[in-house]
């Protein structure tokens, strides 16, 4: 059963992510901040991380960089949720190593599709 780590500092967004993904057969992990996410990811090695970009302290991009810098966590795909829609912001995220983006507000169904597609491609590898 794939493990999915959900990271957001806002409770209701974590609730939304959880409610979106709970139907499928995933194990859901949650973190409230970047640093918490990093330690959980290292400990649990989730199959996928869904993470808010804008967080106090370590931002989503900071976490992505840290994950990519660690060989143990390098392969974990990350979906970044962002309120920023500008192309240069996406560029910064891609170059940091994020696998996909979702602009807020996003469609929960779209998130489900992305998660499934990313999990599928990582299983092929």
């Amino acid at each position: 059963m794939p493990k999915i780590l959900l990271v957001d500092d806002q409770e209701e967004l974590r609730l939304l992510l959880q409610a979106t993904l709970e139907d499928a057969d995933y194990e859901i992990l949650e973190a409230q901040s970047g640093s918490e996410a990093l330690s959980i990811a290292r400990a649990e090695l989730p199959s996928l991380v869904v993470m808010d970009w804008m967080m106090p302290g370590m931002s989503g991009v900071d976490v992505v960089r840290a994950l990519k810098a660690d060989p143990a966590t390098r392969a974990i795909p990350v979906i970044l949720l962002t309120a920023r829609s500008q192309a240069e912001d996406r560029q910064a995220g891609i170059s940091a190593g994020a696998s996909a983006f979702l602009s807020k507000p996003f469609s929960p169904l779209e998130l489900v599709r992305q998660v499934e597609s990313l999990l599928a491609s990582s299983q092929i590898e």
């Binding site: 967004l13 409610a19 979106t20 309120a83 920023r84 602009s103 507000p105 996003f106």
Partner: peptide
């Protein structure tokens, strides 16, 4: 612009997300 964008998008995300979930699934 980015702050306003962020401040507006955060509540909108909840509205959009929960509304869509309730429309597409049974809870």
């Amino acid at each position: 612009i980015s702050t306003v964008s962020h401040e507006l998008r955060t509540p909108l995300t909840s509205l959009y997300g929960f509304a869509e979930l309730m429309l597409t699934r049974d809870f």
